[in-house]
Amino acid sequence: MLIRFVRMTFQEDRLADFLAIFEGSKRQIRAFPGCLHLELRRDLDNPNVRMTHSIWASAEALEAYRQSALFRTTWAATKVLFSDKPLAFSTETVEIV
């Protein structure tokens, strides 16, 4: 299992645009083969920062999504709204206590 975080900083006047994009695509992303979980988080200290947290069955499933038309169109519409470079990283669980 692969856990993916993407931290995005938006132009203040474009955050509503992103939220509309997310609302319009979240069901399709959640239904994408290999996507086990998707949520949107808000940074408590910076109101223009959002972070997606997704869980994928495998690195291959995430890569298939990243190569899909769904990702390409969603990302193209989203990245023009940024005020800073996004930060994305993948993790795996090592231990649960």
Rank of each mutant, 00 (worst) to 15 (best):
M1P: 01
L2Q: 12
I3Q: 11
R4H: 13
F5W: 15
V6W: 05
R7N: 04
M8Q: 05
T9K: 13
F10M: 04
F10N: 03
Q11A: 10
Q11N: 06
Q11C: 11
E12H: 11
A16C: 08
A16T: 10
D17C: 13
L19S: 10
L19F: 04
L19W: 02
L19T: 04
A20S: 14
A20F: 09
I21C: 05
F22D: 06
F22N: 07
G24V: 07
R27Y: 05
R27M: 15
R27E: 14
Q28P: 08
I29V: 05
I29N: 06
I29L: 02
A31T: 08
A31Q: 15
F32M: 00
P33K: 04
P33I: 05
G34V: 02
G34I: 09
G34F: 11
C35T: 13
L36A: 03
L36W: 12
L36K: 14
H37F: 15
H37Y: 04
E39K: 07
L40C: 03
R41T: 10
R42G: 02
R42P: 00
D43Q: 05
L44I: 09
L44P: 15
D45L: 08
D45P: 00
D45K: 12
N46R: 09
P47A: 08
P47C: 09
N48A: 13
R50P: 02
M51C: 10
T52K: 03
H53P: 01
S54N: 02
S54I: 14
W56P: 09
W56Q: 00
W56Y: 07
A57T: 15
E60A: 09
E60K: 12
E60I: 02
A61Y: 00
L62K: 05
L62W: 08
E63R: 10
E63F: 12
A64C: 02
A64V: 02
Q67K: 08
S68M: 06
L70W: 06
F71K: 03
R72K: 11
R72A: 13
R72M: 14
R72C: 13
T74S: 15
T74E: 12
A76D: 12
T78K: 00
T78C: 08
T78Q: 01
T78M: 06
K79F: 06
L81T: 07
L81V: 00
F82H: 04
S83C: 07
D84E: 07
K85V: 11
K85E: 12
L87M: 13
A88L: 08
A88E: 14
A88T: 11
S90N: 13
S90T: 10
S90C: 10
T91P: 03
T91K: 01
E92C: 04
T93L: 06
T93P: 01
V94R: 08
V94F: 12
